[in-house]
Design a protein around this nucleic acid. Structure first.
Length: 526
RNA sequence: GCCCGAAUAGCUCAGCUGGUUAGAGCACUAGACUGUUAAUCUGGGGGUCGUAGGUUCGAGUCCUACUUCGGGCGCCA
């Protein structure tokens, strides 16, 4: 009776048609002189589908996720096995207990009906508390109670792991504060909130890869370790194998990094953009998406020392094409979330932020507005609004300005383009007016800036001038300059801080809840 | 890095202007009841009030320092 695992994409019990297909596959194998059993075994090993034999000979059970069980596609009276963790247990004097079980496969939990006739009912089932792991076997039946369509009528319940000291188990069937849950980051994925965030995060991540791939982008894995000593995006974490207590020093007494692991100073990357530009000027449409590190001492709900960043880059593209790309990109992600994680989004709308779903729908529905920085400044000045920070041509937009533009002035996402060159990075392309660069920010209601991008300076003489202006040593950027010497083309790209988008989609208020194990100044527990 | 706020049971919180044995809900536990739904009802165990000093006859309640958490700002994605 040992249950056999039944892999396969669907995971549901084999239908007759599928068995017929299996038989056909077996008979078509070029092994006429091989016995049926061996041919079957061959087929089984080949396809990883054990159920054909399992049903007739091993009498084992289909192993279903809670999601599959609740889908209701399992034929009646089919024995199934479902594994997970207990959320709640309710006993009934009618001679049964209700055990709510989750396995993370979907937002909902499965109600397991455990009759008092189970041999371990008193000894184990009635001792189940939140967090216990269980393996439940039985059949899926329409629920007699309200609140769920299906439930598992259990014939056996195994308990691989009870919860030690249930009275101090941190995860209770109630609302916990995010602050408290951060202290138990290893247990918080068991809560509704973090289960939902985890699934949505996954969906967003796969949606990004899927969308960009469909658009012809190639995922380029740019390095996490960099030796550029000034990428201009902030403080960096040093990567070194030198003995901190006794580093090698040169004659002058300064630390001799020539004797470090890479023969020079090395750091964790703050952006993959420069590296990915090189691949852009060969593969046309590329993106980098991976961990990024900033050693800034930033203590806010919007900053992490380690976060994930996605940076698409397009060759033969100007700023307008860049903005179009960013718009399609964001809409594809939100669309995927709404379609694939409706259950989790409904939870966010109910418990976290009322308009969690509607604002994504609005975001998708209308085209983004495009506005020039200069016009945006004029609109802000004419607004009559009192801003904490004064508005003047030449200043960077503060969050309050960005939100007014997106929420009040336009009422939907807006792309602000062509910022003063003085407030933007060295690699951004100088416009013909000589005082602005082809930079753009996508501003969204309720959050402010969510994407920043630019057309890159593809003219070497202009790039050199910009680098000198920023005090950067061209010697450190020879390979980057090469890209302008050998077949340069106009190109553009943008960057998305992935966790900030997760925060927005889920309606969270702190970025530390958008990543499983947040790293911030003073914090790298777990 | 700067400014502000908070710290009372496992969790979420109450505790007024300092005054005898510190309260509630959830969780845990015992019982009642029930095809239950973060079930309900009754009882029980559990905290000396972040840490260290100080003021006072007396401090959870006032003061100081420290620690931790949170918020705002800066830096930014």
């Amino acid at each position: 009776m040992t249950p056999k695992r039944m892999p396969g994409a669907s995971g549901c019990w084999p239908r007759k048609s599928r068995m017929r297909a299996a038989a056909a596959a077996v008979s078509s194998m070029p092994m006429a002189n091989v016995g049926l059993r061996r041919r079957l075994r061959y087929y089984r090993a080949f396809t990883f589908r054990v159920h054909t034999l399992a049903r007739t000979r091993l009498r084992s059970m289909a192993i279903l996720s809670v999601k599959q069980a609740l889908a209701g596609s399992t034929p009646k009276d089919t024995p199934v096995e479902i594994r997970g963790w207990v959320r709640t247990r309710r006993d009934s004097k009618a001679g049964l207990s209700f055990v709510n079980l989750t396995d993370g496969s979907c937002f909902a939990s499965l109600q397991v009906v455990a009759p008092a006739t189970l041999p371990n009912y008193a000894s184990e089932v009635q001792k189940l508390s939140a967090g216990c792991s269980i393996i439940a076997r039985g059949t899926l039946v329409p629920s007699q109670g309200k609140g769920q369509a299906f439930e598992l009528q259990a014939t056996a319940i195994e308990v691989p792991g009870f919860v030690d000291e249930p009275d101090t188990y941190p995860i209770q069937p109630k609302q916990h504060s995010p602050e408290f849950l951060r202290e138990v980051a290893h247990l918080r994925p068991r809560t509704n909130l973090f289960g939902a965030v985890s699934r949505v995060r996954h969906t967003m991540m796969t949606a990004i890869h899927r969308h960009l791939s469909e658009q012809g982008f190639v995922w380029v894995n740019t390095p996490l370790i960099t030796t550029s000593d000034a990428e201009g995006a902030g403080d960096m974490f040093r990567v070194s194998t030198l003995d901190l207590a006794n580093p090698p020093r040169d004659a002058g007494g300064t630390i001799d990094f020539r004797r470090d692991f890479f023969g020079r100073e090395a750091f964790l990357t703050v952006s993959g953009q420069l590296n990915v530009e090189a691949y852009c000027l060969a593969l046309s449409k590329v993106y980098t998406f991976g961990p990024t590190f900033r050693a800034e001492n930033s203590n806010t709900p919007r900053h992490l020392a380690e976060f994930w960043m996605c940076e698409p880059e397009l060759a033969f593209a100007d700023l307008a094409a860049d903005a179009d790309c960013a718009e399609a990109f964001l809409k594809a992600i939100f669309k995927a979330v709404l379609e694939e994680r409706a259950d989790d989004m409904a939870f966010f709308a109910e418990r976290v932020q009322k308009d969690a779903v509607t604002r994504l729908e609005k975001f998708i529905a209308a085209p983004f507005e495009r506005v020039d920085y200069t016009d945006a400044i004029a609109a802000l000045q004419k607004s009559g609004q009192k801003f904490e920070f004064p508005v003047d041509w030449g200043v960077d937009l503060q969050t309050e300005h960005e939100r007014w533009l997106a929420e009040t002035h336009v009422g939907r996402p807006v792309v602000v383009m062509n910022y003063p060159e003085k407030i933007k990075a060295f690699y951004m392309r100088l416009n013909d007016d000589g005082k602005t660069v082809a930079a753009m920010d996508v501003l969204a209601p309720g959050i402010g800036e969510i994407i920043g991008g630019s057309q890159r300076e593809e003219r070497l003489d202009y790039l050199d001038r910009r680098m000198a202006q920023f005090g950067l040593d061209p010697a450190h950027y020879q390979w980057y300059r090469d890209l302008r010497r050998y077949g340069t083309v106009p190109h553009a790209g943008f960057g998305l801080g992935f966790e900030r988008l997760v925060v927005y989609v889920c309606g969270l208020s702190n970025i530390r809840d958008a990543i499983p194990y947040p790293r911030t100044p003073g914090h790298a527990e777990f």
